[in-house]
Structures are given as structure tokens and as C-alpha cells.
Nucleic acid binder design. Structure first.
Length: 269
DNA sequence: CTTGTCACCTGAGCGC
DNA sequence: TGCGCTCAGGTGACAA
């Protein structure tokens, strides 16, 4: 799945196929996603998709009467296919369009979501989210001020959606390595100068991954079926025990917040 | 309030 | 081949 770059790449992938298209039918084959898929989603039938937007890792298909919210969880992916294309295992939701195209949500683990949002409102899930990392709202000052007096490990801090959205496990590992910051360092004890470097690396790492078309991992498939090519550029994630690209020492692995954390004990302090 | 842990669910990979 | 175990990109809901 999807960290923010994969979600954004999915948005870019599906948007040209479904923008300005009329939704003819919403088929919910399995409503048992993270939350039960509400029947309200069918309100979108007969409506035109005006735009496809993204907030954090949520995708929104916006229509005049409301928005379909999609989240890919850990294992979700979206494909745009002709409705005649045979279903695969775990194809839970189809959003059919007048031109015969279907936006098909597949999600083996069902940690994803499909919800409905009334127009001119904000879904409660999105009410308390931090800034988007790729906008000017996300700054070193924000990280610095928000982290004061926090004992939490900096890696968990930057993965907290209330602090900044869209920094998942892979890119948290990568950004901290590039910034030379030890992932277990207390967030409140990091200087403004170091947050400046970290902020820049988070932005660059995410932006670069989007450019590369998203990381290729197990079940992420771009909407055109081609995998992304960013995985080969990962410097620490998935490289535990291998040599650090900077100093050649063995990369270490620990667990923080139950997530695998890979870092260089020499380069990251 | 903060911080840490659990839960949700399927599938892949590994050791035996 | 099969079984049991661990791990996997997220994140809301708790408990302490």
C-alpha cells in the first residue's frame, strides 16, 4: 500500500479517466471494510465527478451532492478497467461510469475505507489532521513548536497524523536517515536547525517518490498496471544488516511503535 | 493531556 | 505438502 506518494500517484492515475464522467452505478460487493460502507455512497449515482482530490491518504471523488471518500489502508489499490474485466479476489467496490469504465477497489486486508461526505462539510475523520507535507503549511517551525516537551520518539512523532499527515513507515525511515537523526531520539530534544533539515528531507523524499511513480511494493499497482520504480532508491528501509550507503557500517533494525525501524547507528544521532 | 499497546484482516515467507 | 509462526505500506480506540 500506499504511503502518501502511492495515494497521490493513484489520484493522478485515475483522475483523467473519471473526471467529468457520470457515475452510473456504485456496486458494494463487500461492505466490511475498516468501517461498514454506508449506503449513502450510492447517492453519487447519476452524478458527475467534478474533481478527484486528496487529503492526507484519503481520496475524494467530488460531486455536486457530496463526495465519495476512499482510503487504501495497508493493502488497497485502485484500477480503472472496463466493466467486462473479470473480478479478482478482494475486488470489493466498483464505481461504474457511463462510458463503461469502472473504478475498482481491491483490498485484501480490508483496512481501507469507502465513506460518504456531505457537500460543504468536512468528514470527522479529517477534522484533526495536521498539515499536508508538500504544502507551505508544513514547516520546520511547525515541527519544532509542536514537539516541545514531547518525549515520544521522533519517528513516531512525524508519523502522527495530528502532527503532519502522509509520512508512513517507509518514508519516515528514509527521511530520518537523510537528515542524520536517530529515529529513537526524543522529539522534544531536537533543535530547530535539525528540524529544518528533516522538514526539507521529508518534502524531498515524498516529492521524489511521487515523481518516480510510487514505490513498488507487494500489492501496489499503478492504475495503468505499471509498477512504480522508487523501491530501488530506498536507502535504509528493507536493508537491515546491509551496508550504510554513507559509511558502509551495518544498518541496524529496532521496533518503534510496533513498526520496523532501520537506521545507521553511525550516521544517525 | 501524553504515551504506549491493541485491534482490525489476509497473504507471503520461512523453519520444521 | 502442510502447519504454525512472524511480518507487512495504516490508524482509530483504548488503557495507564
Amino acid at each position: 500500500m500506499p504511503e502518501l506518494p502511492e495515494v497521490e500517484v493513484s489520484r493522478l492515475g485515475i483522475s483523467p479517466h473519471i473526471t467529468d464522467q457520470k457515475i452510473s452505478k456504485v456496486i458494494i460487493r463487500n461492505p466490511n471494510l475498516r468501517w461498514p460502507v454506508p449506503d449513502d455512497v450510492k447517492s453519487a449515482e447519476g452524478q458527475v465527478v467534478d474533481s478527484v482530490s486528496r487529503r492526507a491518504k484519503y481520496l475524494l471523488l467530488n460531486t455536486k451532492v457530496g463526495s465519495i471518500i476512499l482510503h487504501l489502508g495497508m493493502s488497497g489499490n485502485l484500477r480503472v478497467v472496463d466493466k467486462s474485466v473479470p473480478l479478482l479476489k478482494h475486488d470489493h467496490i466498483d464505481i461504474e461510469f457511463g462510458n463503461g469504465a469502472v473504478l475498482r477497489l481491491n483490498d485484501a486486508r480490508r483496512f481501507g475505507a469507502c465513506l460518504w461526505q456531505e457537500p460543504d462539510t468536512e468528514h470527522e475523520l479529517m477534522g484533526k489532521l495536521g498539515p499536508e507535507p508538500l504544502t507551505e503549511d508544513f514547516t520546520d517551525i511547525h515541527l519544532f513548536e509542536k514537539s516541545r516537551n514531547k518525549q515520544v520518539a521522533v519517528k513516531n512523532f512525524i508519523m502522527d497524523n495530528h502532527v503532519v499527515v502522509g509520512v508512513g513507515n517507509i518514508y519516515a525511515n528514509e527521511s530520518l536517515f537523510k537528515a542524520g537523526i536517530h529515529p529513537n531520539r526524543a522529539a522534544g530534544k531536537i533543535s530547530k536547525k535539525r528540524y529544518e533539515v528533516l522538514t526539507q528531507h521529508i518534502k524531498e523524499t515524498l516529492a521524489n517518490a511521487i515523481e518516480q511513480g510510487g514505490t513498488t511494493l507487494k500489492d501496489f499497482i499503478q492504475t495503468d498496471g505499471k509498477p512504480g520504480y522508487f523501491a530501488q532508491e530506498l536507502l535504509v528501509y528493507g536493508r537491515s544488516g546491509e551496508a550504510c550507503v554513507k559509511c558502509d557500517q551495518k544498518l541496524k533494525e529496532i521496533r518503534l511503535g510496533q513498526r520496523s525501524t532501520v537506521f545507521c547507528g553511525h550516521c544517525q544521532r
